[in-house]
């Protein structure tokens, strides 16, 4: 009855070797790791952009899409070659602290405040985001916040500050922090008919709008700038500086900028390239 069990060590070894072989099969490939935001991924931009870049250079781009806060954290730890996010102050701090080589503007779009069509706070059509938030707070209308330290969340908190409302102080009542990504937060807002701040690209692409619609847009403060940074090889020697820089150079080049401009969702341009180098 032991005969089969005596093969156990051999089978065990085989499984270990198989695991190593299978998982190392891709190790020889040329790639860079980019940490970026859920908004750019959920909008589908990378699916459009990256194949073009890889076709030109042969460099594969692996995108890890998380909130801006977490993306910066990953890059600080040296777990990325390039950082592509949307909160200028945090990005400049990242470079100033020596974690990044330099920051470049890439593109912009804007944030919008979405909300239920019944509009209990009567903010539809307003162009002053801060005043709209004051009205939402006064009406105690449900508001779904990312609450995850992402770029969108930081923007939202800045707007509450401008509005002079301590929304986080009443978190759990009408102000609800989901602690999750843009899409997940929109799902929540859609389910409980809450207002929410979202970037326009994610909103256009979002398929579960339910009863929500754009309520507030056009405020200069809703401007949403994306920046790109090479993680410092001085800080993290393993960073693939050459290939990472090649990606940044391409994104900022005329070809890269045109590729961004060409990306449309449902007929709408999702991002507007504005890299200084390309003369836009």
């Amino acid at each position: 009855m032991h005969r089969s069990l005596s093969r156990f060590p051999a089978v065990a070894l085989m499984i270990v070797v198989l695991a190593l072989v299978v998982t190392q099969a891709r190790a020889g490939e040329r790639f860079i790791t980019v940490t970026s935001t859920t908004s750019t991924q959920n909008s589908g931009l990378y699916g459009h952009l990256l194949p073009i870049f890889t076709g030109v250079t042969g460099i594969e781009v692996r995108v890890v899409a998380v909130g801006t806060g977490q993306a910066i954290r990953l890059a600080r730890q040296g777990d990325a070659d390039v950082l592509f996010v949307h909160h200028k102050a945090s990005e400049e701090k990242f470079v100033a602290e020596g974690f990044g080589v330099a920051r470049f503007d890439v593109m912009y779009n804007d944030f919008v405040i979405v909300g239920p069509k019944a509009d209990p706070a009567k903010v539809r059509g307003m162009t002053d985001a801060a005043k709209a938030l004051v009205k939402i707070a006064a009406a105690k209308a449900a508001f779904a916040s990312r609450g995850d330290n992402s770029g969108t969340n930081k923007k939202e908190l800045e707007l509450w500050k401008t509005a002079g409302v301590d929304a986080r102080g009443v978190s759990g009542s009408w102000y609800r922090e989901t602690g999750s990504g843009m899409g997940a937060t929109l799902n929540t807002a859609s389910a409980m008919n809450a207002y929410a701040l979202t970037d326009r690209a994610t909103w256009i692409k979002f398929a579960n709008k339910g009863d929500l619609a754009v309520m507030v847009e056009g405020d200069d403060r809703l401007y949403n700038q994306y920046g790109i940074i090479l993680v410092s090889p001085a800080k993290h020697p393993h960073v693939k500086a050459k290939d990472g820089q090649a990606f940044i150079d391409w994104i900022l080049s005329e070809d890269g900028q045109e590729a961004i401009a060409a990306y449309h969702i449902s007929g709408e341009q999702a991002f507007f390239p504005n890299a200084a180098r390309a003369g836009y």
Binding site: R26, T38, Q41, N42, Y46, G47, R62, V63, V64, A65, S180, G181, M182, G183, A184, L186, N187, S190, K205, F206, A207, N208, K209
Partner: peptide
């Protein structure tokens, strides 16, 4: 894994991604 397309995306992380896109 990081849910990287074509590298570390598996069934469960793909489901999570589609939920976040609102494509229920």
């Amino acid at each position: 894994g990081g849910n990287i397309d074509h590298v570390t995306r598996v069934m469960t992380t793909a489901i999570a991604l589609e939920v976040s896109k609102g494509d229920l």
